[in-house]
Design a protein around this nucleic acid. Sequence first.
DNA 1: ATTTATTTTCAATAAGTTTTGAAAATTCAG
DNA 2: CTGAATTTTCAAAACTTATTGAAAATAAAT
Lengths: 168, 168
Amino acid sequence: MKLAEAKEQFIQSWGVLGSQWGINRTMAQVHALLLVASTALSTDDIMEQLSISRGNANMNIRELMDWNLVYKTIVPGDRKEYFQAEKDIWKVATHIMQQRKKRELDPMIKVLNQLTDIEEEKKEPEVKAFTETIGNIKKFAGQADKTMDMMIKAEENWFWGNFLKLFK
Amino acid sequence: MKLAEAKEQFIQSWGVLGSQWGINRTMAQVHALLLVASTALSTDDIMEQLSISRGNANMNIRELMDWNLVYKTIVPGDRKEYFQAEKDIWKVATHIMQQRKKRELDPMIKVLNQLTDIEEEKKEPEVKAFTETIGNIKKFAGQADKTMDMMIKAEENWFWGNFLKLFK
DNA sequence: ATTTATTTTCAATAAGTTTTGAAAATTCAG
DNA sequence: CTGAATTTTCAAAACTTATTGAAAATAAAT
């Protein structure tokens, strides 16, 4: 297979995967493009290679920088900004986890914690079903939360640090 | 807080969380409704409680049954079908993993495996950047894949079975 | 076999999300 | 400070996805 063709396929598939997981398709494609680029790319490079508008490119690059998946790099003597992706896949994964945990899981856990005290009689089957399910979800979410924190901080922890080397 | 209010909040939040993760908001809401219900509900119950159409309710109930998150139950002497959610949160999580792995991760891994042989000179930096990144993603995806399989089959495995009891 | 209840399908429509592109803002060199 | 290059913003348009609702299909009762 030709390189250009392989890149194209990777970018498309990464875009599809992203959109299935609630990530803007174009953002995932920009990410993919930068992941397989051998050098940093400018906004114009990205616009051209993905056939997208300047506004779209700009938005998604910023979002990727928010997620710590892409960094700005300076090319001396050039006024344009260049971008390059974090290529350590483990870091990519933990950065994504970190962001999604913060933006989505943590707010859900906060809501769950507000749903503990129900006014009605606790013996009512309706109340029992509710508190039991919420309790179980909370327990589960709490564990998932801890696990993610551990993975994110794995480098600082001997057991996880070694355990997770299997992944790298 | 009143039960009705708490339920409402849970259903809304579960819906938001679902949609952020690429799951149809209504599907997540139907799931939430059934999770906190003390009895099995009919399509009409679901339509009424979520203010959605029959077609919408039917579609999402069927999708939830595809994911093994919801089961059909028969009420003797009643022609309507009733539905109830799997309430074991660990099972809920593994069923969701199983489905998403099968539908989304496995196809991505398949694509990655097709991107190995690049015609161009392997020493070219463009080719190197590409094959290295793809190689790393493949390694990572392979490990994630194995881990998910282990979790899904955890009950059959002593180490994981015990390890994961922490979560239950 | 016919009637009646219930579920499923799917084309039309509504709602939601993403993208564009040009104007405004910012940055930088001289 | 001025002007050119570059980046950012955002309202309108394009595109995508979800929902409705009524007709068709199916299932059950008499």
